[in-house]
Computed example of a mutant assay.
Amino acid sequence: MKALIKIKWLDGADKDIALPKHETAQAAGADVRANFAPDQRVAGVTLDAGARALIPTGFAMEIPAGFEVQVRPRSGLALKHGISMVNTPGTIDADYRGPVGVLLINHGTEPFHIAHGERIAQLIVAPVVQGDYQLSDVLDETERGSGGFGSTGTI
Results as ranks from 00 to 15, higher is better:
Lys2Ser: 15
Ala3Pro: 00
Leu4Gln: 13
Leu4Asn: 14
Lys6Cys: 01
Lys6His: 05
Ile7Trp: 14
Ile7Met: 13
Lys8Gln: 15
Lys8Pro: 00
Trp9Arg: 14
Trp9Lys: 06
Asp11Val: 10
Gly12Ser: 09
Asp14Trp: 07
Lys15Pro: 02
Asp16Phe: 03
Leu19Met: 11
Leu19Gln: 13
Leu19Pro: 01
Pro20Glu: 01
Pro20Lys: 02
Pro20Gly: 01
Lys21Phe: 11
His22Val: 00
His22Phe: 10
Glu23His: 11
Glu23Gly: 01
Glu23Cys: 04
Glu23Tyr: 03
Thr24Ile: 05
Thr24Pro: 07
Gln26Ser: 14
Gly29Phe: 02
Ala30His: 07
Asp31His: 03
Arg33Phe: 08
Ala34Ser: 08
Asn35Cys: 14
Asn35Pro: 10
Phe36Ser: 00
Ala37Ser: 10
Pro38Ser: 09
Pro38Phe: 04
Gln40Thr: 08
Gln40His: 12
Arg41Glu: 08
Arg41Ser: 12
Val42Glu: 15
Val42Ala: 15
Gly44Asp: 06
Val45Tyr: 08
Leu47Thr: 02
Asp48Ser: 14
Asp48Ala: 15
Gly50Trp: 13
Arg52Thr: 12
Ala53Cys: 13
Ala53Met: 09
Leu54Ile: 14
Leu54Glu: 10
Ile55Leu: 06
Pro56Ile: 05
Pro56Ser: 11
Gly58Trp: 07
Gly58Met: 09
Phe59Ala: 09
Phe59Met: 12
Ala60Lys: 12
Ala60Gln: 10
Glu62Cys: 00
Pro64Phe: 03
Phe67Val: 02
Gln70Pro: 05
Arg72Ser: 02
Arg72Thr: 05
Pro73Val: 00
Ser75Gln: 03
Ser75Tyr: 01
Leu79Asp: 01
His81Asp: 12
His81Trp: 06
Gly82Ser: 05
Gly82Val: 04
Ile83Asp: 04
Ser84Asp: 11
Asn87Cys: 06
Thr88Met: 12
Thr88Trp: 05
Pro89Gln: 11
Ile92Thr: 00
Ile92Met: 02
Asp93Asn: 09
Asp93Lys: 06
Ala94Lys: 02
Ala94Arg: 05
Asp95Leu: 07
Tyr96Arg: 02
Gly98Thr: 08
Pro99Gly: 03
Gly101Ile: 01
Val102Ser: 05
Val102Trp: 05
Leu103Cys: 12
Leu104Gly: 04
Leu104Phe: 00
Leu104Thr: 02
Ile105Gln: 05
Asn106Tyr: 03
His107Glu: 10
Glu110Trp: 04
Glu110Gln: 14
Glu110Ile: 01
His113Phe: 03
Ala115Asp: 09
Ala115Ile: 01
Gly117Lys: 03
Ile120Met: 06
Ala121Pro: 13
Ala121Leu: 09
Gln122Ser: 10
Gln122Met: 09
Gln122Tyr: 09
Gln122Lys: 07
Leu123Gly: 03
Leu123Met: 15
Ile124Glu: 00
Val125Tyr: 02
Val125Glu: 05
Ala126Ser: 13
Ala126Lys: 11
Ala126Glu: 08
Pro127His: 01
Val129Cys: 12
Val129Gln: 14
Val129Lys: 15
Gln130Thr: 13
Gly131Phe: 04
Gly131Thr: 12
Gln134Asp: 10
Gln134Met: 07
Asp137Ile: 12
Val138Phe: 08
Val138Thr: 11
Asp140Tyr: 03
Glu141Tyr: 08
Thr142Ile: 03
Thr142Ser: 07
Glu143Pro: 01
Ser146Phe: 04
Gly147Pro: 04
Phe149Thr: 13
Gly153His: 11
Thr154Glu: 14
Thr154Cys: 12
Thr154Ile: 15
Ile155Arg: 15
Ile155Asp: 13
Ile155Glu: 15
